[in-house]
Design a protein around this nucleic acid. Structure first.
Lengths: 207, 207
DNA sequence: CTCGCTTGGATAGTCGTAGTATCCGCTATC
DNA sequence: GATAGCGGATACTACGACTATCCAAGCGAG
């Protein structure tokens, strides 16, 4: 498959594909001569993955690359890689200054209540603390019931995610599904939650 | 309060504040003379809200403005405004082409199972369909149990959101809390879910 | 074999977003 | 009455994600 065919099959314009190649999101094709290369199904697949992550998942190119690098490295144990990959995903520390101690404690307490073990250096721990800090900074102390509902839901979702992925033995497939499920799951959940809010708010009745 | 004090109290640099003023995210101060204006607590509050939505919620300036305009308009009924505001939030149709009919049907079926009423022209309906389409396009047919878990969780979360907000009578406060809860809730949930995934994946044990 | 049309790859330019920086007439304060 | 700061408008910058141009080297029809 030449680049133009790859473009046609994937729906991405040739220059964009070249861009992804340059950025290292897409592995180079097999060169058949100094200026000819052949692309295959794996490129097509990767390309679709890239577009899913960026367009639906809203990831930046840099985040996408980091994520794909994790998937590519045939390193580590599954769980470790899985855990680390998911934790790193789009965890760009948006704020230079780290979160305050007391927010970190809040975060740990919350996780503790759910029985979760939290890596002390986990980026998501900071992120969680940051969100909690933001609520505080805005003067709305957080309703504990509300927060509890969220934590419980998160736990159930994570369980569903891992069950879904648990049956797989192929590492590549596992990682890809986990990554996709996590990223697209964010969008899915956001859409579902809003739909539910609108419906419930309209009728003031439960499901 | 002059602009420099506003800057100091809020932590946002003066030029950024001026930028938000230009963009209409922040209402102008009360002019006390042709080139002096006074800012008050409401500006400070709004400024913090803006930064929460953009930095933590990841909204663009344009989305933030649209959202704040909804909050400002002393229009409509609460529920209508609430519903519409939340549905419109960051529902920038990322793809020019609308979703396919069959994905819309999938979306409707899913919502129907939960007993939700979905506005036929709701942007989130399209968004949901798009996410489902993406899964399909990537060749992973969706596990129905998994999807069901997500829909149920979304329903419970929406219920928690509305209960939390239900006690409020002040429209402004209600809207602000709803908006914040929804946007920051996305981040909160994303962080919690990843934390839970990592923990469960590590120990392979539930809460 | 040759001549026009791709191709792979590198470099440079574009566009939108979110700020920064500069400028200017004015004013509040020392 | 000097002078630092203000409000507002306009211009500039930095970055991300492409898009366009360029080039030498194939390939393919005649």
């Amino acid at each position: 498959m030449r680049i133009s065919e790859l473009s046609e099959h994937s729906g991405s314009p040739v220059p964009s594909i070249k861009y992804y190649l340059r950025q290292g999101l897409l592995h180079r094709g097999e060169r058949t001569s100094p200026n000819q290369a052949r692309y295959d199904r794996s490129h097509l697949r990767r390309l679709r993955l890239i577009r899913a992550l960026t367009e639906v998942g809203g990831l930046s190119i840099a985040d996408t690359r980091a994520l794909l690098e994790g998937v590519d490295g045939d390193s580590l144990s599954h769980h470790d890689l899985l855990g680390r990959t998911l934790m790193t995903v789009d965890a760009d520390d948006r704020d230079g200054s780290g979160p305050e101690q007391r927010d970190l404690e809040l975060a740990d307490t919350l996780a503790g209540k759910q029985g979760w073990y939290v890596y002390p250096d986990s980026p998501m721990r900071d992120r969680l603390a940051q969100v909690l800090a933001t609520f505080r900074a805005l003067g709305m102390e957080i309703d504990q019931d509300w927060l509890h509902s969220y934590a419980e839901a998160a736990g159930r979702l994570a369980q569903a995610d891992l069950e879904y992925v648990g049956g797989l033995t192929d590492v590549d497939e596992l990682l890809e599904k986990a990554v996709l499920g996590t990223i697209l799951g964010d969008s899915l959940l956001a859409a579902l939650r809003r739909l539910a809010q609108a419906s419930i708010s309209r009728g003031q009745q439960g499901p």
